[in-house]
Nucleic acid binder design. Structure first.
Length: 414
RNA sequence: GGACAGUUGGGUGAGUUGGCUGAAACCACAUCCCUGCUAAGGAUGCGUACUGGUAACGGUACCGAGAGUUCGAAUCUCUCACUGUCCGCCA
């Protein structure tokens, strides 16, 4: 959630920031006045309650002293009605504010480039040269068929479209990649964590998936539970509603989980192949930091994800997302895109974001900074998306006959 | 899934004949003092959030969550969640 006090005090600045993300000034005006309404409603309510508390105390004294209470009772009853009305007004003001405030995206950093969509993203650097093929490289689904690695039809039979089955060496490679990623992250100081793949609504609200993106989630029927769309949710919310000590920061976590997404709104996109599935594996990094070190940790996370791709010998590039392409919770994001020779283009394989205090405010994650409780910064990033790495290996390591080499660093895992 | 018991501040844990308890005590923690040797003694402070005030210092809310009874609820009623124990089931 954005800082409403900041919005109130620096409206023009805040509005300029959010316009980068395509948020209309009108909605912000509305939010600002709702906030003012709530404060006003609360303050008159509190005055009436203070009065009521005082009279109630007096009431007790009168009874002990056996004084007549009939007059006081009348006053207290009248005030009670006033309170009920003020309370109703305050409740209304609060829910009106909440529904808009929770749907408001994070402020982008000032350094974030202007732009409306992915075409405006800025390439920062390229790492490793794409291999020159002396034959026409195939796309991964063609290679999958040659090798019997991926059974798309049976995946659909078992569940529905956008589900797939991995077989044989593909299944083993998937498992090898997970171990490889976790091992490297652990070497870099990230604690390995194993978490529930189902989380409740409070957690999903904490990281920003709810209430706005409910349609993207698989919900458990009849329960307040959802399949996680990323392990960012359980890892970040590990510290939901907690106050940490300064010396335990930064907290660096990594976890493997499957991720479940409905991909609402992606109809027709990447329908072929493994790029966009309802269920996919991902190894995630999450960092909980002191605000003054989130910048440095962000760099470490980007470098780590890039290092993993380099060790796998996969050509990739780093791209800074423009305001319009930035996610809901992110203040800044760098995507790593891996080269897919079969598709002849770069495709996202990791996305690393600093959400600053946006998620921390929602999830109430703070630390003791001296005497004060201060919101932490939370960061998240993939290291890496497993299915897409499998695809990248297939396309980059293919031979003319369709067979696929296993990258050197993975051999010990297979 | 069934039965019973419980849910209080960072931890342990008082308080449940409704008001004087936002909350004893102990531990932990912080600062200071003493001491000087690795362990101990003393003083003070110490829940969270919002809100008024330059500040000093006030106000409101929170004793698992929500609703109710009452002038007034941690204390009474209801619903739900969670934890524990026993039974059932099960990898």
């Amino acid at each position: 959630m954005i800082d409403l006090k900041y919005l109130q005090k620096n409206f023009d600045e805040a509005s300029a920031k959010l316009s980068k993300k395509g948020v209309d000034t009108e909605i912000l005006e509305n939010l600002k006045s709702l906030f003012a309404n709530l404060k006003e409603a609360n303050s008159s309510l509190e005055i009436a309650k203070a009065e009521q508390n005082k009279m109630s105390k007096l009431f007790g004294e009168y009874i002990r002293e056996k004084k007549d209470i009939s007059e006081l009772k009348l006053k207290v009853d009248a005030n009670k009605e006033v309170i009920a009305k003020l309370q109703a007004t305050a409740n209304e003001a609060n829910s009106a504010l909440q529904s808009i405030a929770l749907a408001m995206p994070n402020f982008p950093d000032d350094s974030v480039p202007e732009g409306t969509d992915e075409d405006d993203n800025v390439e920062i650097k390229k790492i490793l040269e794409p291999r020159i093929f002396d034959f026409e490289p195939k796309e991964h689904w063609a290679l999958a068929e040659v090798n019997g690695w991926i059974d798309f039809e049976r995946g659909v039979k078992l569940a529905k479209s956008r589900f797939a089955v991995l077989r044989g060496d593909a299944a083993r490679l998937e498992r090898a990649l997970i171990s490889f990623f976790l091992d490297i992250n652990r070497e870099k100081g990230f604690e390995e964590v194993y978490v529930p793949f189902i989380n409740n609504s409070a957690m999903l609200q904490g990281t920003g998936q709810l209430p706005k993106f409910e349609d993207d989630l698989f919900k458990i029927e009849g329960e307040d539970l959802y399949l996680i769309p990323t392990s960012e949710v359980p890892l970040t919310n590990l510290y939901h509603d907690e106050i940490l000590t300064a010396k335990e920061l930064p907290i660096l976590l990594t976890s493997y989980t499957p991720c479940f997404r409905k991909e609402a709104g992606s109809a027709g996109r990447d329908t072929r192949g493994m790029i966009r599935q309802h269920q996919f594996d991902k190894v995630e990094m999450v960092a909980i930091t002191n605000p003054n070190e989130s910048e440095a940790v962000f760099k470490i996370m980007v470098d780590n994800a890039s290092d993993i791709l380099t060790r796998l010998g996969l050509p990739h590039r780093a791209v800074e997302l423009c305001g319009g392409d930035l996610g809901f919770s992110a203040a800044t994001t760098i995507d790593l895109e891996v080269w897919l020779p079969g598709q002849n283009k770069y495709r996202e394989i990791s996305s690393i974001s600093n959400t600053r205090d946006f998620q921390a405010r929602r999830a109430k994650i703070r630390f003791k900074d001296g005497k004060k409780n201060v919101l932490v910064h939370t960061l998240n990033g993939s290291a890496l998306a497993v299915g897409r790495t499998l695809v990248a290996i297939m396309e980059n390591y293919q031979n003319e006959d369709g067979s696929i080499e296993i990258p050197e660093v993975l051999k010990k895992y297979m």
